[in-house]
Design a protein around this nucleic acid. Structure first.
Lengths: 212, 212
DNA sequence: GTCTGACGGAACGGAACCGTTCCATCGAGG
DNA sequence: CCTCGATGGAACGGTTCCGTTCCGTCAGAC
């Protein structure tokens, strides 16, 4: 499968030279293969073929397959900063339903592809968590902290538990139950689990009219 | 749709060269290898070696690797029936912290090992969901329905969302965040997410299906 | 005691990968 | 124009795994 990332300048037989983004092209090809066959079945040959590079080039830059894959994961676009919609509900929807969120097909497939590797390669797991999970978790944490400042949620909420709950529920539905995550299902989880769990007292106030 | 897997031992006379549980021994060995190296890297040779069987024997009974693994998964012990502790909280803890629950190391490792296969083998995924996920989900559903009858939880709770939430959260913490699930962490999730989400009491409806 | 047949073990050819090496080619800088 | 360095492509030997086949063994059926 040819990566959609066609080099703008070079085409039609001319050999793609190292234009600086050559490395990114290879990493993109790595992600394509990763999404296609998974981590365990990803081979350097397949990556080389997909990137129209030679294995020699690959090994010149990355000594091992884990190193290449980790680099590829790190090269993925980070989710945008989450816009302040004024409510926790709006922020969560904006964050998880947008690009780079839980409805991003490619990202979900890749996520599932590396779970095996996470369980069996400590170094891989560490890199994955700090580079991939970390930024997303930080963003999500920020959303909840904003809600905390607004007084939208209880002040005794354990963010370590609450913050990862939403992706956990959605990913579980996706991977193990076979549902395709869309905005609607994510909203249902937010409305029926997350918001009730953090709601303030008996009064369930998710009022958008209280911007701190 | 089970591929050519004879229901053995009950048949008289014909079979058991060794013992009727020889098949189960092989399936157990399969689970061992599965937990050890994962689905993609599981080889028939490794299973044969682990079971001290010959590959010929394996292929005599299971035509392919997916068939063998599916049979192995199906042979795993089902979780016990959940004792009625009198409260939803007690039932959840009893169910998920006990054997076959979310603290069962072997089961968790195997779970992570097959996620790759689930995403890429439709037949495998279907068998896995009906044989592995299905019974657990049914048990969990029963626990919540019992709570519903007790009047412990709101009667407008969407069980399709709520029931899989707990395993989702815990598995996410385990696989992606690298936490080891123990009774304490599961209890925290129950107390801070699940119970608040289903607790009786006033609740604003965020249900998009109710656009009053 | 003999026959039967499933068994474990070993080996096979073929295929896929790995990591390396060699080489012709092409782009850029001198 | 010409050299130099990085590249793509192809091939290598070595390893692993697949699915099959053959064979000697041994417990139960007869």
């Amino acid at each position: 499968m040819t990566p959609a990332v066609g080099s703008p300048a070079s085409e039609a037989g001319t050999r793609p030279r190292v234009e600086g983004d050559r490395e990114q092209q290879i990493l993109d090809a790595t992600l394509d293969v990763l999404a296609d066959v998974g981590y365990d079945r990803l081979t350097m040959d397949a990556v080389a073929a997909s990137a129209r590079a030679s294995k020699a080039t690959l090994y010149r830059r990355w000594s091992t397959k884990p190193a290449l894959v980790i680099d590829a994961l790190c090269s993925m676009k980070e989710p945008h900063e989450v816009p302040d919609t004024g409510t926790l509900r709006g922020d969560l929807i904006a964050m998880f339903c947008g690009m780079g969120g839980l409805t991003d097909e490619r990202q979900l497939v890749i996520l599932g592809s590396v779970i095996t590797a996470i369980g069996r390669d400590q170094q891989f797991a560490a890199a994955f968590r700090s580079q991939f999970i970390g930024p997303k978790a930080a963003l999500s944490l920020g959303v909840f902290e904003r809600a905390l400042e607004r007084g939208e949620i209880r002040d005794d909420v354990d963010l370590d538990i609450v913050v990862p709950a939403l992706p956990g529920i959605v990913l579980h539905r996706q991977f193990l139950m076979g549902e395709v995550a869309d905005a609607g299902s994510i909203e249902r989880v937010i409305d029926q689990i997350i918001l009730p769990a953090v709601a303030v007292g008996p009064r369930h106030s998710h009022d958008p009219k209280d911007p701190t």
